[in-house]
Design a protein around this nucleic acid. Structure first.
Lengths: 335, 335
DNA sequence: CTTTAGCACTTCCATTATATGACTGCTAAA
DNA sequence: TTTAGCAGTCATATAATGGAAGTGCTAAAG
């Protein structure tokens, strides 16, 4: 158990280090705690024994350890009031009533990224659990047709296809009608299966050249459903602004994680509330922290995450996420 | 005018420096040119007077100047035969007959980026000159509707809208019918105008709450047409791999250019053929070169650009671009 | 028992010195 | 015109040096 003074010292060190990125000396602390630097030093030795603080070298000031950050986040951090400026910027989004949920979230995190200089991600779960609303084709010039797949949540995927010359648009239309009759309402990730056992056996009765057309649609669907999650990444290069990433090697490490789809998928969160993952808990790199939250608004689910250095303004980021979460998906009934 | 030997020396230096990123000394050259290092040095002095070569410091080897690179590209570079490996990777795309032009280009540059470790961009001119094919709405749950704008080239823009409670879907449908009747065939960038003088004056006759609906559509259209060009950027972080960008400050400079939409727009090219812009000519940074080409296939236009350090494998990149250009937009009639 | 002053000690960091290696430029001879 | 050879220049690596910063410890004071 930490004494009151020990907690204050830890808090001071974490917060000051977040601001300055420089190790904190005992002298810097004694003013605000009203005791001598020697006293602080004695306490610091204890905090270091508990692995809450670290030193870069024998005679450097202290910096928070990963454990120290965690202790801070869990026990010492106080909710930070949002500044009027931050609020104002976000409100321009929330007051736009016609904005789609996904667009609103994207815009919010763009703003967060801009005002905090951290990296932000939205990871929607895409259209996986959406149900097929309809399939539509629009014949364009020549043998080119536009095919669209529309889901019940308003997700649209489209793809331009070129038909082999011996296939007429009429035949394709018949196929589309068949699909619409038989497959509408099916969740996207079950469509391939359903096509196989409910459309394929009978398509031959209605459609000439059915094999070619069927395969084309089958491929189009599987491409659409395999499409990687809806990720919106903003402000990757903000990491370049952080002094602890002034080494290109470290930047490389982070960026290669960012490019690795699997790493990004792992960011997905399913816990309630706003969760903070420091360093190794972030699953990305020991050098970064992730603050994230899961949302589920009228069935549209996803994760919003803010990625920054461990030396992150946790209090500010948490309050920003909190603010966004309580404002998105607000009723569109009103007005 | 350069002598034969002088050209050979310049060529050797450029090509060797591209490989090694280290200044080239006279000794390295004399073997392959069959004369002594002193002779080379005498020639190098002359090439330096012409500003084709530079030195980092008094006793360093020579590196090509911007002018030197240009001379190389214009006069010395020989077309490089593509390696079988490179070809093979690209052919997987060109042999996929159902692939849309845009998708094919995107996939190609992804491969180019991967095999060359340079950054690539496709800058389509979006849907600006497309003509409206149709507007469509799909009512979803509650007061949410999906609105889609489809163009003659198969470009689709969609947006989920929330209707105020007192507006019925019926009224929206009427508006859509009106727009389809009056505005179809109009180029996208003239639509706002046309809405204003051909739909607005008469919409009141057919639609209740016409103001609200009209404004909603008007906004949706202007948002769609203002949408920034279709840019597909790949492999930004490849710059981290180049030794001349081991300094974070330089990376910052490049990345901030990449994030600046105007800078990216300027990449658009309208000249014929494949053009090489070295250093300051690149419009991005003195430290990079851009190799780009304009394509116009069945009216779909755009620019493909490859961005790398000045120390770029120009011959390889040019041949890659050439190969892609002669393969995309191949007939879909066959088979 | 807690706090503090003071001092010795450790490490970093910037500066300087020094040696080495890599090249060039120049000169004089081939 | 070409070449050999040497002096001269600069980068780079390594070591030495003198602060500066900040701790740990001890002993005295509260």
């Amino acid at each position: 158990m930490l004494s009151n003074r020990q907690e204050n010292i830890l808090k001071f060190i974490v917060e000051e280090y977040i601001k300055s990125a420089k190790p904190i000396s005992s002298h810097q602390i004694c003013d605000s705690l009203d005791c001598s630097s020697a006293t602080i030093r004695n306490e610091m030795v204890y905090l270091e024994e508990l692995k809450l603080l670290e030193k870069n070298h024998f005679a450097s000031g202290r910096i928070p350890s990963e454990k120290g950050y965690k202790y801070y986040v869990e026990n010492l951090m106080q909710p930070k009031n949002m500044t009027g400026e931050d609020m104002l910027k976000l409100q321009t989004i929330f007051h736009n009533n016609t904005l789609d949920l996904n667009d609103a979230i994207k815009k919010s995190i763009e703003i967060v990224s801009e005002i905090t200089n951290y990296t932000t991600v939205v990871l929607g779960n895409g259209a996986k659990d959406n149900k097929l609303k309809k399939v539509e084709i629009v014949p364009l010039e020549d043998n080119k047709i536009l095919t669209m797949v529309i889901t019940d949540k308003g997700f649209v995927e489209h793809k331009n296809l070129y038909l082999p010359k011996n296939v007429s648009t009429e035949e394709v239309k018949k196929t589309v009608d068949l699909i619409n009759k038989l497959v509408v309402g099916t969740p996207l990730d079950e469509i391939s299966e359903k096509l196989e056992y409910s459309v394929k056996p009978i398509i031959g009765k209605y459609v000439r050249q059915h094999e070619l057309i069927y395969n084309t649609f089958y491929d189009a669907f599987s491409e659409i459903t395999n499409k990687e999650n809806n990720v919106h990444f903003v402000g990757r290069s903000n990491f370049l602004k952080q002094p602890e990433f002034s080494d290109v090697e470290k930047i490389k490490e982070i960026f290669s994680k960012f490019e690795d789809v699997n790493c990004i998928r792992e960011i997905a969160e399913d816990k309630n509330g706003i969760n903070v993952y420091v360093g190794s808990d972030s699953e990305l790199s020991d050098e970064v922290s992730v603050v994230k939250t899961h949302y589920n608004i009228d069935g549209e689910e996803g994760t919003i995450a803010i990625i920054g250095p461990k030396r992150m303004e946790y209090d500010r980021v948490v309050s920003l996420l909190d603010y966004i979460k309580s404002n998105i998906g607000g009723d569109h009934e009103e007005e």
